[in-house]
C-alpha cells in the first residue's frame, strides 16, 4: 500500500478506498487483495506515449469505470490489463501491474486471459452456434464433458441475462441474434471461463437504450463474483453502474475516486470541466 501511495502522490484517496462491508471469500481468492495494483504504468505505441505514469488500485467485486475524451488512453489502459495490446506490433509497457499479487506481465497469456475476461465495443460473436460461442473458451482452457459444457452454457447465459431468450435456439447461429443479444452473448462467452475480472470496452456504444439498460443491470449483478472494469463515453452510465470512476486525460489518470465524489464534487478542475461538459 505504502509503495503505491508514494508512487502516486496525486491520488492518495485512490489507494485506500473504503471497501464497505467485508467480502466473503469464494473460489479460494483472497478477498483482501485488490484485483489489480497498477503502479507507474507507461505505455508506448512505437515512440508515441499513450499512458503516462498510471497508478491505481482496482478493487475486487466492484465496478470501476474509466472515463475521458477520445484518445485519452482509457481503452489502452484497459487493454494492458489482459495484455490485449500485444496484438498490436511495436507496443511496449513499462511499470508494474499486479493481478492479485502476481506480476501480470509474467503470467502465462492463456491463463491471464482466462482470469481476465473481456467484451468489446462491437459485439463480436463467432460465426458459430450460440452454444459453440459459449463453449469456445472452456474447450480451450480445460477438459469438460458434454454435460458439463451444457451446464456451463446454461449458467453463463443465465448470468448474462440471455438464457430465457435463447434457450430454445442454442444450436442456431449467433449471428441471428440482435445487437444487444449478441453483446450479452459475448459477455456470457467471457463468463464461461469464470473470470476474476471482466473488462468491458464501451460495451453499449452500439446499442439502443433498452439493450443498454439490460447490460447495465447485468453488470451490477455480476459484481458479486468478479471485478468489473468498464470503459465508457457515457458519464451517466458510469454514474449509474460504477462504484469507482477514473478520469483519464491525455494519457494521464487525472482523478480516481468513488463515483459519487467524481460526479458530485470532483477535486480536480479538469474532471469538473469534463463532467460538466465544458470540454470533450
Amino acid at each position: 500500500m505504502s509503495l503505491i501511495m508514494s508512487a502516486s502522490p496525486k491520488l492518495p484517496q485512490a489507494s485506500v478506498p473504503d471497501m464497505g462491508p467485508n467480502l466473503t471469500s469464494i473460489d479460494g481468492r483472497d478477498p483482501g487483495k485488490p484485483a489489480f495494483s497498477v503502479s507507474n504504468l507507461n505505455f508506448y505505441y512505437g515512440t508515441h506515449q499513450a499512458l503516462d505514469e498510471i497508478s491505481l488500485m482496482i478493487e475486487d467485486r466492484i465496478v470501476t469505470a474509466l472515463i475521458g475524451p477520445s484518445g485519452c488512453g482509457k481503452s489502452t489502459f484497459l487493454r494492458t490489463l489482459n495484455r490485449m495490446y500485444e496484438v498490436v506490433p511495436n507496443t511496449r509497457a513499462t511499470g508494474s501491474i499486479l493481478l492479485r499479487s502476481e506480476d501480470l506481465f509474467s503470467i502465462d497469456l492463456t491463463q491471464l486471459r482466462r482470469r481476465v475476461g473481456m467484451a468489446f465495443q462491437t459485439a463480436n460473436p463467432f460465426p458459430k452456434s450460440i452454444f459453440d460461442n459459449v463453449t469456445y473458451g472452456p474447450k480451450i482452457q480445460g477438459d469438460f464433458s458434454r454435460a458439463e459444457l451444457s451446464d456451463l452454457v446454461e449458467e453463463s447465459l443465465r448470468r448474462a441475462a440471455l438464457w430465457d431468450e435463447v434457450k430454445d435456439k442454442l444450436h442456431k447461429s449467433a449471428l441471428g441474434l440482435s445487437g444487444g443479444q449478441q453483446q450479452r452473448l459475448c459477455i456470457a462467452r467471457a463468463l464461461a471461463l469464470k473470470p476474476e475480472v471482466l473488462l468491458l470496452d464501451e460495451p453499449c456504444s452500439a446499442l439502443d437504450p433498452i439493450s443498454t439498460a439490460k447490460i447495465e443491470e447485468l453488470i451490477v449483478g455480476l459484481k458479486d463474483t468478479c471485478a468489473i472494469v468498464i470503459v465508457t463515453h457515457n458519464m451517466q452510465q458510469a454514474a449509474r453502474v460504477a462504484d469507482f470512476t477514473g478520469f483519464f486525460l491525455m494519457g494521464k489518470l487525472i482523478e480516481f475516486d468513488r463515483s459519487t465524489v467524481i460526479f458530485e464534487k470532483p477535486k480536480r478542475k479538469e474532471t469538473e470541466d469534463y463532467i460538466t461538459g465544458r470540454f470533450g
Partner: peptide, 15 residues
C-alpha cells in the same frame, strides 16, 4: 473476416 473475431478468440486465451 473481421479482426474483431480474431480479438475475441485471443481474449478468451486461445493461441
Amino acid at each position: 473476416v473481421p479482426n474483431s473475431i480474431r480479438e475475441a478468440g485471443l481474449a478468451l486465451g486461445a493461441p
